[in-house]
Structure formats: structure tokens, C-alpha cells
């Protein structure tokens, strides 16, 4: 029944193969969580930073480490603690007595894949230090600007805000994360699979078996390819309507920014690429909208007290807007 015209305009064979290999590597250790894995890959292909939220013990850090290991790029890890300082992240200038001059010692942020573990345990002062590097991919220190190498991806994990010892991240920083992935508890079957797989070997042993399947240059190349994907004008209008509605919705204290609308298009393109298409559909937009918007919008106090979640509001917003066809 399928006609021949659906043959590819864009050669996505290499990209599809790389995606399959990443999925296979993650799937060999992470049980279930297919949506999370897909969003992680989409986030990397869409040139964005990823925030993973979930209760302790559901493999957030393991997933991030595993993903970093599948990518052949410079990896560094920063454990955020309540007393961490901006210089611990970015680096600092140290006086060199032999040269009688200050020398910049770069911090762990200088890498390709940066795992920021428990990001919401650091105070706002240190969070603010990430603003420039996350958005502009550069660090300015002592009147000098240091550019980050491509690709530059921040993978951050956090516990829900209700948990002990956590701070709410500043809105400006949350907006810099392309997607926020909420990791749920595994199902009963998944739990059984986890136990079956994990009881005989340690996580370190499992991690050691993972080998890089994609290089940093390949990621940069795929990103360029995805950026050129086709987007039907009516779908751009559809995204704009969703974002505009978020700004006038009575359940929301703070709506989504224009950065959010760009993010929806970019992540939808990445999802389309994962599914072997070089164009986006309304399904892609509807699918990824909660992950892109849930951390960028703020509910009114009344709605928070009623127990409404940002995902509920996003669903209500989309329900109001006609799917372009």
C-alpha cells in the first residue's frame, strides 16, 4: 500500500544506525524507561542540555553516566553540594610566582559531556555561574572569554524540590535546559528484570562493558543535518499558539518563553530524525511538549495547592488548539 515517494530526501541511515546503537547500549543496563532514553538522545541531537528529575535510586546518575560513556567525548562530573563555589565549577585564576602573572586554571565545566549530579543541592550563587556557559557556551573570567568545545552538553540530575536539602533552581537556569525528563518508578515486570540483571554483577562491571558508539564530531554533523529539516508553516503556527496560550492561561503564573518555542521545534526535529523522518508532524510536537515546557512554566499558588501538575496544564493547553491538518 505504501507508495515509492516516501523514499528519503535526506540520508538518515548513519544517524539511525548510531541511534540504534545508543539505544542498545542503554537498554543493556537500563530496564524500561524507553521514553527517557528517546528524550535523552533527542536532547543530544537537538543541541541542548538535559535535566533528569526523579526520586533517589531510580538510576538517574547511572543513565547519565551510561549515556556519556556511549559518546566518545571528554567527560567530566561535578557533584553539586551546598558549599560548592562558582570557582569550583568554572575555574579560577592562580598567581604564578615564577612568571609573576595570574594563570587561569580551568574548572570541570570545560569538557564535552558534563554530568552535574544533584544540581539542586547547590545555592543560587553557584547556579548563576552556569548561566553564561549553558546559554552562550563560553566562560568569561578576568576580562577573558574562553569558548567551550563542541559538542557541549550539560546532563544534570536532581531530586524533586520537596526532598530534604534541595533548592529550587532559578527560572533563568531552568529555561536553559532543553528538556526536563521525569523518571518514574519501574513497573513490576521491569523491577523483576532489574533484579534479575543486577543481582549477579555490580554496576561498575556493567559500565565497564559499555563502549563509545558515536564521536563528538559525528554528533555535530548530525545536528547540522537535523537543523535543515523541513517544518510545515502550519506546524510553526501550532507551536506558537501553544506558547502564546501558556502566557494567557489562568492556571499559570509564568508562561513559556520564545526560547521554549524554539526548543519545541528543535526537539521535535530530533524525534523525527530518530523515527527516520526529515520533517516533523503534530504527533512529534504533542509528544515532546510536556518535556520541553514542564520546567519553564510556573503554576499559580492556587493550582499548586490543588495538586495540579505542569503536565496537566500543558495537556489542557494543547487540547484547546486545533491540530493542523
Amino acid at each position: 500500500m505504501d507508495q515509492e515517494f516516501t523514499g528519503q530526501r535526506t540520508d538518515l541511515s548513519q544517524l539511525s544506525s548510531a541511534v540504534e546503537q545508543i539505544k542498545k547500549s542503554l537498554g543493556s543496563i537500563i530496564v524500561g524507561q524507553t521514553e527517557m532514553v528517546e528524550l535523552l538522545i533527542a536532547g543530544i541531537l537537538a543541541d541542548g542540555h538535559i535535566l533528569i528529575e526523579g526520586v533517589p535510586g531510580i538510576a538517574k546518575t547511572l543513565t547519565a553516566k551510561l549515556l556519556a560513556k556511549t559518546l566518545s567525548a571528554k567527560f567530566s562530573r561535578i557533584q553539586f553540594t551546598p558549599d560548592i563555589m562558582p570557582s569550583d565549577v568554572l575555574g579560577t585564576s592562580i598567581f604564578n610566582p615564577r612568571e609573576t602573572s595570574f594563570e587561569f586554571k580551568s574548572g570541570p565545566i570545560f569538557g564535552n559531556i558534563i554530568l552535574v549530579d544533584e544540581i539542586n543541592r547547590a545555592p543560587a550563587k553557584t547556579q548563576s555561574a552556569l548561566f553564561e556557559v549553558m546559554e552562550e557556551r563560553q566562560v568569561t573570567m578576568d576580562s577573558r572569554t574562553y569558548k567551550m568545545d563542541e559538542p557541549f552538553i550539560v546532563l544534570a540530575t536532581q531530586n524533586p524540590i520537596e526532598h530534604e536539602g534541595t533548592y529550587r533552581l532559578p527560572e533563568a537556569q531552568l529555561d536553559r535546559f532543553l528538556v526536563k525528563i521525569e523518571v518514574k518508578y519501574p513497573t513490576l515486570e521491569e523491577e523483576i528484570n532489574i533484579l534479575t540483571m543486577q543481582h549477579s554483577q555490580t554496576t561498575r562491571e556493567q559500565l565497564d562493558r559499555v563502549v563509545p558508539v558515536i564521536t563528538g564530531d559525528e554528533i555535530t554533523s548530525y545536528r547540522k543535518q537535523i537543523r535543515a529539516f523541513h517544518v510545515e508553516p502550519k506546524l510553526i503556527e501550532f507551536v506558537a499558539k501553544i506558547i502564546h496560550e501558556s502566557r494567557t492561561n489562568k492556571s499559570l503564573f509564568l508562561g513559556a518563553s520564545p526560547r521554549a518555542s524554539i526548543a519545541i521545534i528543535n526537539v521535535a526535529k530530533a524525534i523525527a530524525a530518530i523515527n527516520g523522518r526529515d520533517f516533523i508532524t503534530p504527533d512529534d510536537i504533542v509528544k515532546i511538549a510536556p518535556a520541553v515546557l514542564r520546567h519553564r512554566i510556573m503554576l499559580t499558588a492556587e493550582k499548586e495547592m490543588e495538586g495540579i501538575s505542569p503536565d496537566d496544564v500543558v495537556a489542557q493547553i494543547i487540547q484547546k488548539i486545533e491540530i493542523p491538518r
Binding site: 500500500m1 505504501d2 507508495q3 515509492e4 515517494f5 516516501t6 530526501r9 523541513h230 510545515e232 506546524l235 523522518r277 526529515d278 520533517f279 516533523i280 508532524t281 503534530p282 491538518r325
Partner: peptide
């Protein structure tokens, strides 16, 4: 599902088709 795929490629993907297709 097959018809939907054809529609999506032609409408959202702007794939050009001729009379025979």
C-alpha cells in the same frame, strides 16, 4: 496507519508526487 503515513509525508513533509502516484 499506511494511509496516514502517506498523508503525513505528502502534507507535512511536502514530498512532491506526480499524477501516477
Amino acid at each position: 496507519a499506511s494511509l496516514t503515513r502517506q498523508f503525513e509525508f505528502i502534507w507535512y513533509g511536502e514530498f512532491n508526487i506526480d499524477q501516477s502516484v
